[in-house]
Design a protein around this nucleic acid. Structure first.
Length: 470
DNA sequence: TGAGAGTCAATAAT
DNA sequence: ATTATTGACTCTCA
């Protein structure tokens, strides 16, 4: 119950045009030359069949608004109830890899925020859910896979001839590799916790760093510039998503009100109309981002800092937090604080883990001095980022923002407001979760505000007609 | 050029 | 074995 009319209609629509459920296969790459669509419709129980790309896309185009959250929820239930893994489901039904499916199921974006392409998987899921037989089919497939696996395992045991390439990486004996000249694979970059912290701090100060700032960060952290760029892109996206789900789940009004001093007095904008509402189902274009009521409030206070100027990065929060958080133990003396004359600090030297970084020959990227004073804010920002660093317990658990069910149902509540005293002292790692979480949340929100401001400014300069609704 | 959306795919966690 | 996380890619769009 709950919303289902539209779903129903889609269902019908969907089924009609093409009897066979998803037909599409393809999945990735490749597309382009599509012969005439011949279409056969016939059987094809399995998705992987021919080309008929049209169907899905058309369906997506004409699909009514779907409840992505509800769909994923149901899919998850069905999968668990029947012991079906998301890998199989993803590859078979959605044409996506396991990781993508996991992400999609865990953090579905609201329908109106999805592009046509992004809606596709949801339409497929809806389609799949429509016919209970599909579950059976998938189960059969699972059985078959298992069987095949067993068989393979068997034969190999008895016959040591298995084939397979070993995994040792030694295998470039033949010369037929698709990609000649490539250094062995490509070592996946794994950012150390300290590096992530530094980047997050930088994000808090400036969600949209200038190329120059990015360069500086890269140099200081000893990371490739592209890595830093990618990190920011990814992080922004993820943050945005978290906000979406918050929006969805909260559904509502939260209005928290909780005591707390209304520090709201922000002078700019904000006037959140109170309706808080949540959804903003509105537009779709690029600019979207709407802070919800309550949050705005908090943000304003945090953001207020920069009053005075239009958008200056504010870093106080971050810095402070970090400083306070530093555990007393951790021996980490200084370190990076001194920037030498070159301003290059090196990343923490943690030696234990698999010394990830170390890009192959990458050299210092040449960015000798970074002193260019373009704008103080920039340099200041990056500098401070590093300074505060030093380790800190890692285990990043502080991040999971979102949470905070916002309102209403917060069981146990009581506490949130209390510790507002900024957690100056970090306590042990474990126990501080609440504080940390709190301040972390706050910082995030502040950053989000910056983010929004940035976009607003951008749009404004571009002079676009957009509807901002906050 | 740069931002955002979607994904992939390696690898961490469970 | 599965599922979750996350750096990098590919496409679009403006």
């Amino acid at each position: 119950m709950s919303s289902s009319e539209s779903v129903k209609s889609l269902t019908e629509l969907v089924q009609q045009p093409c009897p066979a459920i998803e037909t599409s296969k393809d999945g990735k790459s490749q597309e382009s030359s599509e012969p005439p669509a011949s279409e056969s419709q016939s059987t094809t129980p399995l998705p992987l069949s021919g080309h008929s790309a049209l169907s899905i896309q058309e369906l997506v185009a004409m699909s009514p608004e779907l409840d992505t959250y509800g769909i994923t929820k149901r899919v998850k239930e069905v999968l668990t109830d029947n012991n079906l893994g998301q890998r199989l489901f993803g590859e078979t039904i959605l044409g996506l890899t396991q990781g993508s499916v996991s992400d999609l199921l865990a953090r579905p974006k609201p329908w109106h925020k999805l592009s046509l392409k992004g809606r596709e998987p949801f339409v497929r899921m809806q389609l799949w859910l429509n016919d209970p037989n599909n579950v059976e089919k998938l189960m059969d497939m699972k059985r078959m896979e298992k069987k095949a696996y067993m068989k393979r395992r068997h034969s190999s045991v008895s016959d040591s001839q298995s084939c397979e390439s070993s995994s040792a990486g030694i295998d470039y004996s033949q010369g037929a590799s698709p990609q000649p000249q490539h250094q062995l694979k490509k070592p996946r970059v794994v950012l150390a916790p300290e590096e992530k912290e530094a980047l997050k701090r930088a994000y808090q100060q400036k969600p949209y760093p200038s190329p120059k700032t990015i360069e500086e960060l890269a140099t200081q952290l000893n990371l490739k510039t592209s890595t830093v760029i990618n990190w920011f892109h990814n992080y922004r996206s993820r943050i945005r998503r978290e906000l979406f789900i918050e929006e969805i789940q909260a559904g509502s009004q939260s209005q928290a009100g909780s005591s707390d001093s209304p520090s709201a007095r922000s002078s700019r904008a904000a006037h959140s109309s109170e309706g808080d509402s949540c959804d903003g189902v509105d537009a779709e274009g690029p600019p979207d981002g709407k802070p919800s009521g309550p949050e705005a409030d908090e943000l304003s206070s945090a953001a207020a800092k920069s009053q005075g100027g239009p958008a200056e990065p504010a870093f106080e929060a971050g810095e402070e937090a970090l400083r306070g958080a530093r555990p007393s133990e951790r021996a980490e003396p200084e370190s990076l604080e001194d920037t030498d004359d070159e301003g290059r600090l090196r990343a923490p030297r943690q030696s234990s883990p698999p010394a990830p970084q170390q890009r192959p020959g990458d050299a210092p990227e040449t960015l000798p001095n970074s002193a260019t004073e373009g704008d103080a804010s920039t340099s200041a920002a990056s500098t401070s980022v590093l300074t505060g660093e030093s380790s800190y317990k890692s285990k990043e658990s502080l991040e999971r923002i979102s949470s905070v069910p916002s309102t209403s149902s917060t069981p146990a509540a009581g506490s949130q407001k209390a510790n507002s005293l900024q957690s100056l002292f970090g306590f042990s790692e474990a126990a501080s979760s609440r504080n940390t979480r709190d301040s972390s949340l706050r910082k995030k929100k502040a950053a989000n505000l910056n983010n929004i401001i940035h976009r607003l400014e951008k749009a404004a300069s571009r002079e676009e007609a957009v509807e901002w609704e906050f």
